[in-house]
Amino acid sequence: GAPSFPAPAADWWNFVARSPSLLREVEECVGNISLPRCSQLRRSFALAPHVDELRGSRRLSPLMQAAQDCQVEEMKSLRQIFHASLQTRDTVNRSALHHAVASSCFEGAAFLLESGSEIDLQDSLGLTALMVAIRSHLVHPNLVLLLASAGSSPFMVDKSDQSAIWWSSWRGNATTVRLLLSLWCPSRSCHLLLACKNRYGRTPLAQASAMGHSEVVEVLREYGAEDEEVEEEVDLEAAKQGTTRKERREEE
């Protein structure tokens, strides 16, 4: 019989996209829905809104949900057969690429980029996919390399004026910092990039120093970062929260 629609209906699209036997039938009928054997699917498709208009049980579009689960073949089916859009956003303005990266799904992220995903789309906090990858507790260098090599801008900043290099310094991952700087500053002269400050007046070097990330500090200096005179005292807890000690006292 015709496929039934679970609640919410968006999950049905993911079900179809991951079901080989049903997918083959759907693929044949998409090209010629008038075929007699396609009548049952025709009725199902008539009931279903477009794949981009639906949200599944996680409040995500089918493509975002597949990206979050790192179901790459499912992602390909949703794109190639059902023409799911790469531009659809969730409630916090994240794209399928954001979700693939947040799940450390290298193959899924690569597929989305090859399909034309915009590399520097920003979510509601201003985070690009590269920033999401860097902020992760388990940073995967290959994923960072993929995104940076695909053209993510070193000068993109979030709503706190924090760049990918700034977030790498905050995370304390010297490997990621060196990887990004080697791509963006092959001549080892990164003064302009490394001199950029966040909204609290901290450069990547100041942030790494405040948090005790000595290996990151060494790499940043190697690429031209310069120490600055600190105008006000900064403690480790304030650095982690992105506020100065003075600001914390005022909040208290």
Rank of each mutant, 00 (worst) to 15 (best):
V16A: 12
A17N: 05
L23V: 12
I33L: 05
I33M: 12
L35C: 00
L41Y: 09
R42G: 08
L47G: 06
P49S: 11
D52W: 14
E53Y: 07
G56D: 15
R59M: 12
P62R: 10
P62D: 09
Q65S: 14
A67I: 00
F82A: 03
F82P: 01
A84K: 08
T88E: 13
R89P: 00
V92C: 05
H99E: 14
A100V: 01
S104F: 06
G108P: 06
A109M: 11
L113P: 01
E114C: 09
E114F: 08
S115D: 06
D123T: 11
L125K: 05
T128D: 04
A129L: 08
M131C: 06
M131D: 13
A133K: 11
H137F: 07
H137C: 08
L138K: 04
H140A: 02
S152E: 07
S153H: 06
S153R: 11
P154W: 12
V157Q: 00
K159L: 14
D161P: 01
D161H: 09
Q162A: 15
W166Q: 10
S168L: 01
R171C: 02
N173A: 10
L179R: 01
S182Y: 01
S187K: 09
A195S: 15
K197V: 10
Y200D: 10
H213R: 11
H213G: 01
L220K: 06
R221K: 12
E222F: 09
E226H: 02
V230R: 09
E231G: 14
E231L: 12
E233D: 01
A238D: 15
K240R: 11
G242L: 07
T244E: 06
E250Y: 08
